[in-house]
């Protein structure tokens, strides 16, 4: 029986979800005090799982290394290279935290590549806009900060999350100004409400200090859920091509 596929499915979406969150987590790890190797390890695990998921989507799995053949123009190749460098450096950072800043920069590169993968997809109006890049990066930050909050549970992490959430809100509204897609309606609203709810929770934590940590963790969870839902929707459901429209109607016989 012939297999047939026309769009990316959940496996590709998982790469954007887990890869984005993992990269964000490694970036966040660079800002956390006291520094800890565990967020780096978790971040790498997330990225690895995402890449594994997308590997499952490829049609010819044994040819995986072919993904490296086109660094000149393909952001997918660049993403693969970024991952290839990130993993040893990340492992180094896990063993000795002095590599952490380099790992964070590489994670940012990885995240950037992911954003550019979408932007280079000229077939899909919801992806090909410039505003998708800050959105994916800000979302990665926010998700990474959320994971950091859950993992290390410090006020600084919560503050980081608050900043990332504001960045995500701004990036989303810029993106939304460019892309009007009905398919993103629900997930987009959840993203905004999720960010506002998370910000309220974090804000409340400053006043009710005894509840600050659980509130921050809850904020992280809300951020993650809303961010992941958006990416899932963006990759699988909003991946409409623009369709076809005629700039001119043919003249049949006479005008």
């Amino acid at each position: 029986m012939t297999s047939l596929q026309r769009y990316w499915d959940a496996r590709a979406a998982l790469n954007f979800i887990l890869g984005g969150s993992g990269a964000g987590l490694i970036i966040a790890a660079a800002f956390i005090h006291p520094a800890s190797p565990w967020p780096v390890a978790a971040g790498l695990a997330f990225i690895a799982t995402g890449l594994f998921a997308v590997w499952l989507e490829t049609g010819r799995k044994l040819r995986a290394l072919h993904v490296l053949f086109n660094p000149f123009t393909s952001w997918m190749t660049r993403e693969a290279f970024a991952a290839l460098v990130l993993f040893p450096v990340g492992l180094g950072a896990f063993l000795t935290l002095k590599f952490l800043p380099v790992a964070a920069v590489l994670a940012l590169v990885f995240l950037w590549c992911q954003a550019r993968i979408l932007r280079a997809s000229r077939g899909i109006p919801a992806w090909r806009v410039a505003q998708v890049v800050p959105l994916i990066i800000a979302a990665g930050f926010a998700e990474g900060a959320s994971l950091a909050v859950v993992l290390v549970q410090t006020p600084l992490a919560a503050a980081l999350l608050a900043i990332a959430l504001i960045a995500r809100l701004i990036a989303w509204s810029a993106y939304r100004g460019e892309v009007k897609s009905e398919a993103l309606e629900g997930a987009g609203r959840a993203l905004q409400l999720g960010a506002i709810a998370a910000l309220v929770l974090i804000g409340a934590g400053f006043y009710f200090t005894q509840a600050a940590l659980p509130a921050a963790v809850l904020a992280g969870v809300v951020t993650l859920a809303s961010g992941w839902w958006l990416k899932f929707t963006l990759v699988t459901r909003a991946a409409f091509t623009q369709g076809f429209s005629l700039p001119r109607q043919p003249v049949r016989g006479t005008r």
Binding site: S3, Y7, R122, G123
Partner: peptide, 25 residues
Amino acid sequence: DLCIGCGYCMVACPYEARAKVDGVA
């Protein structure tokens, strides 16, 4: 023989011209 069937070209094409069949575009 080179294609890995990642499907990236399918989503990059504005003309819905590509389909992944038996693992390759």
